[in-house]
Amino acid sequence: MASEPADITDLLLRWNAGDSGALDRLTPVVYDELRRLARSLLQRERPGHTLSPTALVHEVYCKLVDQNRVGWENRTHFFGAAANIMRRVLVDHAKKKFSQKRGGSAKKVAIKNDENLQTVQFASEELLLLDSALDALDRIDARKARVVEMKFFAGMTNKEIAGALGTSDATVERDWKMARAWLIQAMNSGNPPAE
């Protein structure tokens, strides 16, 4: 790996101290690591060993960041940033799978009625639907889109999201409910509702 854990921690601390350039350097490292992990896990498709996006972000965090040195706020910001990166990782992966399937060249993905495969399963069409709905939501209400990213892709709690966004738990909860309903509505109708 090109980057040592110490560097990531340092970048994280610097970013949190207001050095916005640090985020630019942080992102590719986290992205690479997430993609690498996601690839190995998604390809494994072994029952009982799938991993959710949340767990992935946690894995990467544990691996890259020296947790002795970063406070709760830093973790929150890392997860806030990682939520967006995770979204990109999964969407890229889903796009690849989706195009392989449409091209018919790739091995067919077995979708059994096995709860252990759910995570692998959603990694294609449904996820792409969610992604474009989320883009649409972002254009209407960027904060709500961030809330969804953090909750869904990084498994953050309302309190943690509130911390990252500088708002209250109650606002996050309201945002989430509205965003969730709007996204479901958007995905069910096949295209986003009145924009």
């Binding site: 959710s52 949340t54 759910q118 959603f122 449904e126 996820l127 969610l130 869904f152 409910k177 969730r180 309903a181 709007w182 996204l183 479901i184 509505q185 069910n188």
Partner: peptide, 11 residues
Amino acid sequence: AHEADHPLLDA
């Protein structure tokens, strides 16, 4: 939609 279940969003 708020009342509906959604397996993807409702882990």
